Simulated assay, not measured.
Amino acid sequence: MQPYQQLSSVFLCLLTWLHSNLAHTYVPLQSFTGRIGGGNYTYYKLLRNGNIQIQLRSLEGDADLYVSQTALHPTFELDNFDVHSVTCGDDIVDIPESYKRPVGIGIYGHPRYVQSIFECVISVAGADATLPPANSWTPPDAEVEEESIMWTIFVNVLKVVLDILV
């Protein structure tokens, strides 16, 4: 074998190794903790492009994860989510780059527990870590749907009042 053939073989092996390892390496973007009442949902919207991984760890109780590229409020109903993870431990869902954005993410508190406390980590594939967030390239005149903080507070207070009454 000629020296340049050996070098090209080594280079090809190195590129293959790098590609396979970068494709499965995730870089954390954001993490947060939250609480969810049994039988209730908390919803999030994912705007960022790229291959995304969501890790949901139930610290107390049991929180489950539902994801949809067509519904912003996915539920456990079979026709209302694309992927889900409903283990009693860590829930992990991979969202491919091909999913239409925004992606709806629902965290469901299992009704067996009065309350579930969870930690959620959003990570991006190593190869996609340099991509800008989706909203950084949105034209300035484009409409971006955002919920008012007052509306969110009102809905949460209403949920608490209903939970007390029921």
Results as ranks from 00 to 15, higher is better:
V27D: 01
Y4K: 13
Y44I: 00
G34N: 13
V124E: 11
T87C: 06
V121C: 12
I107S: 01
V157M: 13
W137L: 10
D94K: 08
N51K: 01
T130Q: 13
Y4L: 11
G34T: 13
C88L: 15
L18F: 06
V124H: 09
S136G: 06
F118S: 04
L59F: 03
Y41Q: 03
E119P: 00
V121R: 09
A134I: 07
L56N: 06
K159S: 12
Y44N: 04
D91P: 05
L46T: 05
E146S: 07
L72Q: 10
Y44S: 04
I54H: 05
F11K: 05
L15P: 00
Y43P: 01
T75I: 08
C88H: 15
L14E: 03
T33K: 15
S20D: 03
T130D: 14
R57K: 10
D62W: 13
V121S: 11
L22G: 03
E77N: 11
V121P: 01
F154T: 12
V10F: 03
E146Q: 09
G34W: 11
I107F: 00
L72V: 10
I52A: 02
L72G: 12
A134G: 15
T33M: 10
L65S: 04
I95V: 15
S9K: 12
N135H: 14
A125G: 05
T42C: 05
P96S: 10
Q53G: 01
S98W: 09
R101V: 04
G106V: 02
P140Y: 07
L22W: 09
A63P: 00
F118A: 01
N156T: 15
V27R: 02
L7M: 07
T130K: 13
P132K: 09
M1F: 14
P3C: 12
A142N: 09
Y44Q: 03
L15R: 02
P28I: 11
V93C: 10
N21C: 00
D82C: 04
I92P: 04
E147P: 00
T75K: 06
Y41N: 01
F154M: 07
E146T: 12
T33Q: 15
Q2H: 14
R35S: 14
F11M: 02
